[in-house]
Each structure stands twice: as C-alpha cells, then as structure tokens.
Nucleic acid binder design. Structure first.
Lengths: 344, 344
DNA sequence: TTGAAAGCGCTAACAC
DNA sequence: GTGTTAGCGCTTTCAA
C-alpha cells in the first residue's frame, strides 16, 4: 500500500505539501504541484479512506436509507437511489446503502460511528420514528425524500403531490368529467400514513370541491383480479364515473385491461390520468396522460441539499417540485352519455 | 463524541480492555466485561468507524456495484441489492452502493483507498473489463453475481441459466410441443454479451437438439407494439409454433395480451414458460409456469462467499443455483392441430 | 486477566 | 510557498 509519506519522499517534498496538493486548501507552486502529481500517478497512490476520515472527521460518505417494502413501486426507488449515487459522486461522495430494516437504530449507528457525514431518507411516513433522532444531531445533516407531517427543522425534497392531485382533477374537469375515481396505492400504503399518497388525495379532494366534481377513492392491490373487483364496486356505486386518476404503477395495466374487457373504450368512454413513472406511462397499452414522478431530480436535489448543508449551513427548507402534466392518448372529452353495457 | 478512552476512564479500566471487550479477541473477566458494557451503554458509545478502519485496516464495508442500465429488470436488481445489504448486516458489514458508471475506475478507487474490504459485482458481462483488476488484487476479495466467460481465479454466484433453458425445453417437449420460440431480452442485452441471456439460450438449444424439437430465438424490446411485430414474424416463419419460453419481464404481459388478441388461448393453443421474477409470474394475467430468478438467494450467497473469503481464504469457486420449475396455468399439452385464424 | 504504548495514514494548525 | 508536528480514536503487540 502506497502512503502519503512515500509520495512525499518520492517527490522530495513534505507530507503536508502532498496533502495540500490533494485538498487544494493552500496555494502550491506550479512546479511542486506537477512533481507531486507525477509521483502520485507513478506510485499509484490512493489516499487511505480511514485515515482521512479519522484526521478530518469527514468520511465523504452519504448514507441512503431505502425502504425494504415493495408495495411502493421498486423501479422508482431504484431510479432515486441511482440518481443519488451518481450525483453524490460528482460531489466527491460515496453512498452507503442502508435498508429500512434496522429502523431508527441505523440512524444512531451511522451517525454515532461517524460512518457517514449525512443521511438521505426515502419513504418517509407522516409520523416517522426516525425524525426525532434526525432533528437532534444537527451536526450530521439529513435530507428526506418525502414529506412528514411536521417539517420543523427538517430538509425535504419531494414532488408536490398536493398540486399533482389538483392538476389531475383540473385536467379531467376541463374535459367535462364530473364523476371521478382515484385508483390508489395498496391499502397498506395508506395505513402506514405514507405522505405522498395522502397528499395527492388531499389535492384531489380540494380541487374537486372547488370545481364541484365528485370523487371516489379506492386503494387497490396489484393484479387483475383485484382491479376487476375494485372497478365493479366503483361502477356500482357511481355508474356515471368517467374519469380515473390512478396512482399505482402496479395497477396501471390491469386498469386498462379490465376497462377494455368491460367494453369501455379509453378515452372515448372513460379518461385515465396516471401519476407514475414516465416509462410506465409510455409503455402502457394506451399511451397515458400522466404526471411523471421526477425520480432523478428528487435524488439529485436531495444530494445537492445535503452537500449544501455540509458546506455552508443554510436553514432547513422544503423543496417541492412542481408537477408536470403530459397530455397523451388516454384522456379526452366526454363523448357519450351512457355506457353500452356488455358491448365488445 | 464519546471515545473509547472516555469509556475506559468511566469504567476504571484501560483502553485496551474496552477494545477487547468489544472485539472479544481475548478473555475478559465477567466483572470487568459487565462494568465496561454498562459504561458503553450509559455514555452511548459508538466506535469511530474511521479510527477503527485505520487501526485494523478493515472497514467492515462491502462495495456493491450495480448496473446503471435499466434494460435488465430493475426489481430483480433491487431485490438482490436489498438481500445483499440485509445479509451483510447480519455479518457486521455495511454496503457501499456503487453504480457501474465509473466502470473499472471504481474498482481501483475503492480497493486502493481501502474504503471497502471486498466487492460484489452485478450484471457481469462475458468479457468484463473489470475482471482483470479483480483477479489481481487478491487481498481484496470479490464475488460476481453472474458468470463471465473465464472464471479463473474468480468467485461467482448465479442461477444455473444453462440448466434453466434446458429445463424449460424439457417441460414443453414433454407436453408434446415440437416447435418452440424463445422471446428474449432486448437486443442490447445480447449485444453486450450478458452471460445469463446467452447461457439460457445455450441450454435451450442443447436440450432442443437432444429432444429433436425446433427452436426460434427472438430478442424483444419492451412494449406491445414490439411484441406484436415479434409474434407476427415468429408465426410467419413457423406457423406451427406452440411453445414459448420468455426471458424478459417487460415482455411477459405484452406476450399474453397479444396472444389473446390473436385469438390464441393459453394454454389450449400455445403454452408459455417464463424465466422471471416470482412476483411477475404470479401477478400476470395468466398465472405462469415459470423458473423464478432466486434474487434473494443470490444476494445472500454472494455475501456469504465474500465473508468466507474475508475470514478464511478458500479457493475461488463457482456456485450455480439449480433452477426450479413451478408448473402453473400457462402450460399444457398440445390440444389442437390447427389455429383458428381470427377467432375471438 | 489486564495495562502501557506504539503505531495506523492523514489533516491542519503553527512555524518559517 | 513549504516544512514540522501534534493529534484524530482505535487495535494490537509486548509486558506484567
């Protein structure tokens, strides 16, 4: 293993000079810098991470806590995780991959051992048990991807799901739809008070109230059978339903398929607006009007906020990303008054 | 920050005693151990990771390199990653999350800086450019999830895809199918010589040769349009095709849908066997006869192998997991000689 | 069964 | 612009 001392000797300078060439924390003459850099390259020197962390009390590691659950759509989680890792590297950080399994204990362990300089948490619940810990140890900054109920002294990034819900309703209402249904995430997601699902619903209801349209909300498990059952109940209760908002990637294709089987054409008979990953909207059997989950941007901004807090020390803030509606083939104006029962 | 020295003082023992209580590397009297443990708890002590890494030259971190690509099914990647992280924790390791983006340079960086004690690589290609580096620095063990062309001095874990391909053919042939088609991964996956896709194909062809059945292989992009085109070509070329092997999670549902649209009933007219994640097989619109990708087991075994190499120093080995065929509703005996063109 | 002390490789004052 | 040096907090000989 090549050490800094060996590089220093090889270049004929002191250890601190090598260190400063590496960190750029003080000015170095061009000649010295060149010499040192050549030695580094020739010897294949890599600074020892442990030593550096010990001496500087900075590990250059950001911990990322991902949920273990798979009822929230996995590709989005992965897209965020990869965006975090990629963005972190551009700032000189590596990413430690923690699963939610350990719960709050992981926060204690990682901050306590100075393993990571900061944390990014995904899948935050409204009353998350990890939050008190994060609020305290202010020295180790944290950024949440998601929005808890109380954001006091917390930094958060998320899609503005409230605005997203409202936007979907506005779009459908503008096409003339007066009876809407929200096909939601699996019941478990609501039961554990996941912020994004509830906030979307709030936005939907608020705007629906303003515009005088009716809304029915139904959580939905993955799969075709579950979807068929859900749709039956919806049309039983509200036969006039003509607009769907679906926030559940696993439910998108089942929804389209079951509607087709029932002889309801999209968008002639019913319109569908999805809140989902862009790829899902594009590859569905009907190209979907949708609000995309900006996973990459969320990951990238989380890193930027973390790095900012590590560098300066700005006030906590909540960064909400405005939703963008992409209008495509699954939504259109109300065309027919009645649904042709049993039509092919 | 509480240090080991403070714990020692609080417990009235020397620093080394505290260290040995923690590591268990020498015997400690029950009384001393109790006293030290109490102090640790009272003071909320967590060993400093950097200091520990520096002194012991072990970081207790395993680096996991995940692919950036999303043409291989993301939920499987995530399942493996989570299994790795979970298994690693049970052995006292944390996981560093590296994306393939940096390529071989990441290997150099992580091993050079002693950031990680070992590496696990996913999405290995037949001729992977990271392999030479791994073979060299023998001190830092590596385990591949996947199988490159040359496994000399390398440790690998993977599903036995060759046997998987053979197993699928055997099953379909035993049901009387004589003309098979393989719906494969996206062309890009084959073009970059990804081992698992090619090995499956080898297994399919070998067994098909032995059993005298014909096989057509078609890579397939995600989406319904691509699938419709692919199926047309297959049935044009081999109208008698009655058995499908699909190895592409993104293609599963499109395949079933397009077959249905063409009036080909599953399994009455054609049988389908999938090589895919268990969840996909279970939630498809027809419950699929399939060989599951044992993602969790792969992740877990990769960690076990890494830990073993870190502990003892066993010879490199290749661990292939035998495939398990689950017979379900999508495969059955050949029933009809001819396909009813245009039937509903 | 325990303690004392010498590093591990690097950073960052403090000197010049 | 550069060198000297005192730690950072832990592990692990060596001694007792």
């Amino acid at each position: 293993m090549v050490t800094l001392a060996e590089v220093a000797q090889h270049a004929g300078v002191s250890a601190s000079t090598v260190s400063y060439v590496l960190s750029g924390k003080r000015s170095i003459s061009a000649a010295t810098r060149t010499r040192v850099e050549r030695s580094i390259r020739q010897l294949g020197y890599h600074p020892n991470a442990g030593a550096r962390a010990l001496a500087s009390s900075r590990s250059n590691i950001i911990a990322l806590m991902v949920p273990l659950r798979t009822d929230i759509y996995v590709p989005v989680m992965m897209e965020i995780a990869i965006a975090v890792a990629t963005a972190a590297r551009t700032h000189g950080y590596d990413v430690l991959f923690l699963t939610g399994e350990e719960g709050p204990e992981a926060v204690r362990r990682v901050t306590g051992s100075a393993l990571a300089d900061a944390m990014i948490l995904m899948d935050v619940e409204l009353q998350d048990e990890r939050l008190p810990l994060l609020r305290d140890c202010g020295s180790r900054p944290a950024v949440l991807i998601g929005l808890p109920a109380d954001t006091d002294r917390l930094t958060c990034v998320d899609l503005d799901f409230h605005a997203t819900g409202a936007l979907c309703v506005t779009h459908l209402a503008s096409l003339g739809h007066r009876e809407l249904a929200v096909i939601g995430e699996a019941p478990a997601v609501y039961e554990r008070h996941t912020g994004f699902a509830l906030r979307t619903l709030d936005g939907v209801r608020e705007r629906a109230g303003e515009l005088g349209v009716r809304v029915l909300h139904r959580p939905c498990e993955a799969g075709y059978a579950a979807m068929a059952a859900t749709l039956s109940r919806i049309f039983d209760e509200r036969p006039g339903t003509s607009g769907f908002i679906v926030q559940n990637e696993y439910a998108v294709e089942p929804l389209l398929t079951v509607l087709r089987q029932q002889g309801r054409a999209v968008p002639e008979d019913v319109s569908v607006v999805a809140v989902c990953q862009e790829q899902v909207a594009a590859q569905a059997s009907v190209r979907l009007t949708s609000v995309a989950i900006p996973a990459q941007e969320m990951g990238r901004r989380a890193v930027e906020l973390v790095v900012a807090k590590l560098t300066d020390d700005p006030a906590p803030e909540v960064a909400l990303i405005p939703p963008q509606l992409t209008i495509s083939a699954s939504s259109g104006p109300v065309l027919r008054g009645t649904h042709r029962e049993g039509a092919p």
